[in-house]
Computed example of a mutant assay.
Amino acid sequence: MSWTRRSADLLVAAAMVTSVAACTADSGGGGASCVAQYTYQDITYQGVGNVKFTLGKKLGVVTAPPCEDTGGLGKSEEPVTTGTAYEVDGISPKVAIAIGDTPKTARFFAVHSGSELPPEVQKLIDGS
């Protein structure tokens, strides 16, 4: 599979694995959707799909900022979404965590540097 195709598949999968409430564009058309992002201990993570991982111990609470692309609500009117962070075996929580209401529903999230994923995450995706 080509790198471009794999990247496109990852982006689509990441958009589908969000546990943040979906935000939609206004009826004026053409607006963007919110990205699945959470913050844990001042580190921001984005959803990554198609990653096989082993869940570790419970870490604590994550927060997600309110979606600001739909207009109409002020920042103080929309609550911050929260979830539970879990370790991912073999990867530092500074690189990736799993997030979900329960261990069974936890999804994989990683830090991003531009369009690059950390090597540890890419290794899991590649199955190496």
Rank of each mutant, 00 (worst) to 15 (best):
S7I: 08
R6V: 12
K104F: 07
S113C: 02
L10C: 02
I43K: 12
D26G: 15
E116F: 10
H112A: 10
Y86D: 00
G114Q: 08
I43A: 09
V35C: 04
V12I: 13
I99Y: 01
Y40M: 04
S27R: 11
V111I: 15
G100M: 04
A14P: 00
V121R: 05
A106P: 01
G49P: 06
G49V: 03
A8Q: 13
G28V: 08
I97M: 04
M1T: 11
S19L: 09
P66G: 09
S92H: 06
T4E: 13
E87C: 08
T63L: 12
P66H: 08
G56V: 05
R6S: 09
P65G: 11
S76Y: 11
T63F: 13
G83V: 05
K75E: 03
D89I: 14
T54Y: 08
G127F: 04
Y38G: 02
L55D: 01
I125V: 15
I91S: 02
A110I: 03
E116R: 13
S33V: 08
P119V: 12
M1V: 10
P65D: 14
D101H: 10
T39M: 14
L117S: 10
W3T: 12
Q46P: 00
T70H: 12
D89A: 15
D101W: 03
V20N: 12
V48A: 06
V61R: 13
C67N: 06
G100S: 06
E87Q: 15
M1L: 07
T70R: 14
G90A: 06
R5P: 00
I97F: 04
A85T: 03
V51G: 02
T54G: 09
G56C: 01
M16Y: 02
L55S: 03
A85C: 05
Y45M: 14
S113Q: 12
S33A: 14
W3F: 11
D126Q: 13
P66T: 09
